[in-house]
């Protein structure tokens, strides 16, 4: 009984929600709306659990003077301050309105002068670490690393106007460079008889070469030179090879989510109940 009731609830609500997606009419439409609201109400209670747990861990750490207890103290003080100021909407002086757009509330001041600078500072530090990590990580140690390096290099360049300026004078130079690298990969793979990779790399290389030759044809007949510049290539990388990879990952994830959802709804997967055995 202890297991059957949660399993039945999961099956019932899971099935109704799936049906509601495919039959967006009464009564499923109504069930969909109401259950989404139930979900939000239930999720709101999770903050009590999360907040309570946070306090329990950090207060214990402070009380026992464990290593790093001073940071825990800051966490506790920060949490309680924001909680009190936010819950009671404490005003700086006589003010009307309790909305958070009211700049005469302590909540607003804490957001504007504490939370915002702290979060922005933390994120701004990333620029320095990304620069340092790029310098160390982007080395052409092998073929895969070389491909990654080249893609990163051209995207970095393509995101600035310098990229446009360079290829305005030498259109197609990047495509030719890429075609040579891909040709080199294909040649190397042909020795190991990896014909799929040879075909793929060779086809992309030939396509880039053909694109450049076509681009020059366009340019010579008075067309737009912009056709074979770095920003266009960057767009091509993002829209075709990059998107193909992303789609493959997304489809894989979605298949995993569908199979896991079905396992949970049908009661095959029971680990969320606290144990995977009956």
């Amino acid at each position: 009984m202890k297991k059957q009731v949660p399993l039945f609830i999961t099956f019932l609500f899971g099935t109704v929600m799936i049906l509601a997606t495919f039959i967006p009419h009464y009564p499923f439409k109504l069930a969909d709306t109401e259950m989404s609201m139930f979900f939000d109400i239930l999720a709101a209670f999770a903050i009590l659990l999360g907040g309570g747990n946070l306090m329990r861990i950090h207060v214990t750490k402070v009380a026992k003077h464990k290593k790093g207890w001073a940071y825990s103290l800051i966490t506790v003080v920060g949490f309680l301050t924001m909680l009190i100021v936010g819950l009671f909407k404490l005003p700086l002086g006589p003010t009307s309105g309790v909305g958070l757009e009211n700049s005469q509330l302590y909540m607003y001041k804490l957001y504007q002068f504490v939370l915002r600078p702290l979060q922005s500072t933390m994120f701004a530090l990333l620029a320095f670490y990304v620069a340092s990590a790029s310098y160390r990580a982007f080395r052409a140690k092998n073929r895969e690393a070389t491909m990654l390096l080249l893609a990163a290099f051209f995207i970095l360049l393509g995101r600035t106007l310098i990229g446009t300026a360079i290829t305005a004078y030498l259109p197609g130079i990047v495509e030719i460079f890429f075609a040579i690298v891909l040709g080199w990969v294909a040649w190397d793979q042909s020795k190991s008889k990896n014909w799929v990779i040879v075909g793929l790399m060779g086809a992309i290389g030939l396509f880039l070469l053909g694109r450049t030759i076509y681009g020059y044809g366009v340019v010579l007949t008075g067309g737009e030179m912009e056709f074979i510049t770095i920003p266009k290539l960057v767009n091509w990388i993002m829209i075709y090879p990059q998107m193909a990879g992303q789609r493959a990952i997304m489809i894989g994830i979605c298949l995993g989510v569908i199979s896991m959802s079905l396992r949970i709804i049908l009661g095959v997967e029971r680990s969320y109940l606290g144990s995977d055995t009956e």
């Binding site: 620069a131 390096l149 290099f153």
Partner: peptide, 10 residues
């Protein structure tokens, strides 16, 4: 300019 510095270091 930040991108150019990163490219330079790469």
């Amino acid at each position: 300019f930040a991108h150019l510095v990163i490219i330079l270091f790469i």
